[in-house]
């Protein structure tokens, strides 16, 4: 019970800070829109059907947007000395991790939930996830991938903030570690969104789902154990 309350306190602090400043959400949202405009100039979306690449493009936009937010979430902890306060408080280190990670998960998911319909209107002629049997698979894929991104990203951002290179290091370390998540997320989103809704790709999406679940569990446990080291006391 105490652990739950402590985690909630850390999470609430991040939520209140965000509600008052709207720093992260606004910049992440603008960034994800900008990425989509870049897709248009890169692929000439007016004349090309991007449905086949839908999953890939979606996650290309999401992963960079996520890293933008992840860096921010740890940097202001450092700048405003909040991290020292957290470290002084009698809270288990892995709970600090869970609290921060949940905050990032919420922010990333919120931005994505707004961005997905816009992305669909912009690029996908007829998304297959409008069918009820596919929408749950689609959303579950997005959510599980977000857990992986927020989980690994929070850890890597914390690690990077303690080094000389600061936030430069976050994507360099985080992206290769998240490759399995990205691959799985792309094949789930692609299958439920895309023009080639074959039985094969849907089956593949289910296998990808298993990878995501397994990845999330293994990494969350491993990182919760290692987070104390990354905080760098």
């Amino acid at each position: 019970m105490l652990a739950l309350r402590q985690t909630w306190a850390i999470l609430k602090k991040d939520l209140i800070l965000e509600l008052r400043t709207r720093e992260m959400l606004l910049s992440m949202f603008l960034f994800v829109l900008l990425t989509m405009v870049i897709f248009n100039s890169a692929f000439d979306a007016e004349r090309t059907d991007l449905t086949t690449f839908g999953g890939g493009l979606l996650w290309l936009a999401f992963i960079f947007t996520s890293f933008l937010g992840l860096n921010r979430s740890v940097v202001h902890e450092k700048v405003e000395g909040c991290l020292d306060g957290l470290l002084l408080s009698p809270v288990d280190r892995s709970l600090i991790y869970v609290g921060k990670m949940l905050g990032n998960l919420i922010f990333i998911s919120l931005v994505e939930l707004v961005a997905i319909p816009i992305f669909t209107i912009f690029f996908i002629k007829f998304p297959y996830y409008v069918y009820p049997q596919n929408i749950s698979l689609f959303l579950a894929g997005v959510f599980l991938a977000n857990i992986g991104i927020a989980g690994v990203g929070t850890f890597v951002a914390t690690l990077a903030a303690n080094t000389k290179r600061k936030d430069l290091l976050t994507p360099i370390l985080g992206l290769p570690m998240l490759m399995p998540v990205l691959g799985a997320a792309v094949s789930i989103s692609g299958a439920t969104m895309g023009g080639q809704l074959l039985v094969k790709t849907l089956n593949q999406a289910k296998e990808a789902m298993q990878i995501l679940v397994f990845y999330d569990i293994v990494f969350l446990v491993a990182i919760a154990l290692l987070y104390e080291v990354a905080l760098g006391e």
Binding site: F155, T163, G183, A184, S187, I211, A222, L226, A230
Partner: peptide
């Protein structure tokens, strides 16, 4: 040493996942 060790551990887990997932997907 502390930071590198965390990546040394997580890195190998990633290697295993990468090998599995690229083969399945």
């Amino acid at each position: 040493a502390n930071y590198a060790a965390t990546i040394g551990v997580l890195g190998y887990i990633t290697v295993i996942f990468t090998m599995i997932s690229t083969r399945i997907l």
